[in-house]
Design a protein around this nucleic acid. Structure first.
Length: 555
RNA sequence: CGGGACGUAGCUCAGCCUGGUUAGAGUGCCUGCUUUGGGAGCAGGAAGCCGCGAGUUCGAAUCUCGCCGUCCCGACCA
């Protein structure tokens, strides 16, 4: 087909909006792919919607190839389904009601709805099933940002698998994993599949798909040798070794007036900050105060802490600290503390400086096992200078966009929603489920983040809204149409720039919009019948006869 | 929700501190002429609830208060 730029709504801008920060945000707006309606609410222009649909179709083809079946389920969902699974109270959920006052949610995912439908699966003979749909998701995000990177309403492809047991789930999970690999590969996106937190989804295993980019919400931790990749929140790493002072037989009290940070403490004592410890009292829901202990140069990773404590906790209040330690906040430490202590692995070996539970005093030479008892877990945030747990190589940290996430849900939803089937042994059992999401909008954003230059977007062929951009320069309109027609007849989607614009403006817009191939038909063409074929990514240019275009354009 | 910034033409911004004719520029848009292989030139033109509401004042884009909106950092987060 041929789309004429003269009639297409193609609102390119010379300047990026002032409030845009992320490259993908700036370029998608400037090139006319998206427009903002309100915070976190974006419309896709005709051009942008074509890209979105390209992503959708790649996903659709790969999911269909693993036997998944496409549905379409409503956004509006009766609240009672969400009450049944206990997710109605999640703060991100939009709530609404009908005229009779019946409550509904605008859900952020469709586990409840699809599990509801899965109640119709009654026999193991009907299993396994993998169902998916593309549907609008709403999330009352506290802070939307970065154009398409974090929004309040978006289309997600979400799949749900239903199996009779864990083995079946494993197969369904791996099938999706393989499909996801093919999907992102086809979209031309660099990504890492990493172990991740299951978060509010529940379930046992999850794999996060992170696309490294200049902007994003996640931090991807990788080892250059390729033997390690993880989301910062769950990444394990080896901190640099601490340099300890000479060991002593028992902790020694030292006065440390006006010392508040570990850096100050290390400076005051003239020791390595990594030889100090940091005490962070946390309160559990039942009121218990747990002392979280990390090395002086480390930060506490709350996601890891939650995993170690098997539940959420919060920083203790000053009153709770006084009650638990009999001391003021500021010089807390593990020695003499009667409650549970959870220490980071980095504190296992060595003698550290710790708070003395007396304001203005610290203890040197504090050794776990001898001076206090603790349980150990990895609860620190990895940081620059850490090394790989597998090969010891230096780790690198990159911001990344989460473009997909797959979960083993188990029976988290099938039990509360009574999605049961009759197994071969005559027993009624809950369906064993998985769920699998991809945000096509985020795939678009990630592609732009990864593929652009100073002049604009450089779309991979699979995602470009059209295959070829034919520029009709003044006087060559007829020939340009001929070139476009030859390509269209050969099966290419062509954007024909037949606007009454100066050449420079057409070139600039073509670079900005970023179609993979640009064909210029102009004065030179009138002379010898050849057109210029230019590769957007490499800038390589060649002169080609119009009749030979289909071959020359082939990727 | 905490911290910070911003709201003036489609877009990018000036004007505000120190209140005062009819609110400006660039770009984009419209008309005409000239031009046409990397955002050309000339001439003419349309385009603004100066975020909203109160207040101060003879007089408010400008000062004060409140609200709303948007962005950034953090918290939060499939």
């Amino acid at each position: 087909m041929i789309a004429r730029a003269s009639t297409l709504h193609l609102p390119t801008l010379r300047d990026a909006p002032a409030d845009a920060e992320a490259v993908s945000h700036k370029l998608l707006v400037r090139a006319g792919y998206i427009r903002q309606v309100s915070a976190g609410l974006w419309s896709f222009t005709p051009l942008g919607w074509r890209v979105h649909r390209k992503v959708e179709n790649v996903i659709r083809e790969e999911l269909d190839a693993i036997g998944a079946q496409e549905w379409f389920a409503p956004v509006l969902t009766p609240l009672e389904l969400w009450e049944a699974t206990g997710r109605a109270g999640i703060p991100e959920i939009f709530h609404t009601q009908d005229r009779a006052g019946r409550p509904f949610v605008l859900p952020m995912t469709h586990e409840e709805t699809f599990t509801f439908h899965a109640r119709e699966l009654q026999s193991y003979r009907q299993l396994p099933q993998s169902w998916y749909h593309f549907q609008t998701k709403d999330r009352d995000e506290p802070r939307p940002r970065g154009g398409l990177i974090r929004v309040r309403e978006f289309i997600m492809k979400d799949s749900y698998s239903f199996d009779r047991d864990e083995d079946g789930l494993e197969k369904s999970f791996r099938a999706h994993e393989a499909a996801y690999h093919r999907i992102f590969k086809r979209c031309g996106i660099a990504y890492h599949a990493v172990q991740a937190e299951s978060g509010m989804m529940g379930g046992s295993e999850s794999v996060d798909y992170l696309a490294p980019s200049g902007s994003g919400e996640n931090t991807l931790v990788t080892c250059p040798t390729g033997d390690f990749a993880a989301d910062l929140e769950v990444a394990r790493a080896v901190p640099r070794p601490a340099t300890f002072p000479d060991a002593i037989d028992a902790p020694q009290l030292v006065e440390t007036p006006n010392v508040t940070t570990c850096e100050d403490l290390a400076g005051f004592l003239g020791i390595d900050v990594a030889a100090t410890s940091k005490a962070l009292p946390m309160t559990l829901p039942d009121g218990t105060v747990v002392l979280a202990l990390v090395r002086g140069d480390d930060r506490l990773e709350e996601a890891k802490l939650a995993a170690a404590l098997q539940g959420e906790s919060r920083p203790s209040t000053e009153d709770e600290i006084r009650a638990a330690f009999g001391a003021e906040p500021g010089s807390l430490g593990p020695v003499g503390f009667a409650g549970p202590i959870l220490a980071d692995e980095a504190l296992r070996d060595g003698q550290f400086v710790a708070g003395a539970n007396t304001t203005g005093w610290h203890l040197t030479g504090v050794e776990q096992g001898r001076d206090f008892q603790a349980t150990f877990a990895d609860i620190r945030v990895p940081k620059d200078g850490d090394t790989c747990i597998n090969c010891g190589g230096p780790l690198t940290f990159d911001t990344a966009i989460e473009i997909g996430h797959i979960f083993k849900l188990g029976t988290r939803y099938s039990v509360p929603l009574d999605a049961l089937f009759l197994d071969e042994d005559g027993q009624q059992k809950p369906l064993v489920m998985g769920s699998y999401g991809i945000g096509p909008g985020r795939v678009m954003a990630a592609a732009v983040e990864q593929m652009n230059d100073d002049n604009g977007i450089v779309w991979p062929r699979a995602l470009a809204p059209y295959d070829v951009h034919v520029l009709a320069l003044p006087g060559a309109e007829e020939l340009a149409l001929e070139a476009a027609t030859v390509l269209s007849d050969a099966g290419y989607d062509v954007l024909l720039d037949d606007r009454e614009k100066r050449p420079g403006e057409k070139f600039a817009d073509a670079d900005l919009i970023g179609l993979p191939v640009r064909i210029t038909v102009g004065k030179k063409t009138l002379e010898d019948g050849n057109v210029d074929v230019r590769d957007r990514a490499t800038g390589a240019e060649s002169r080609v006869a119009i009749a030979a275009l289909p071959g020359a354009v082939k990727g």
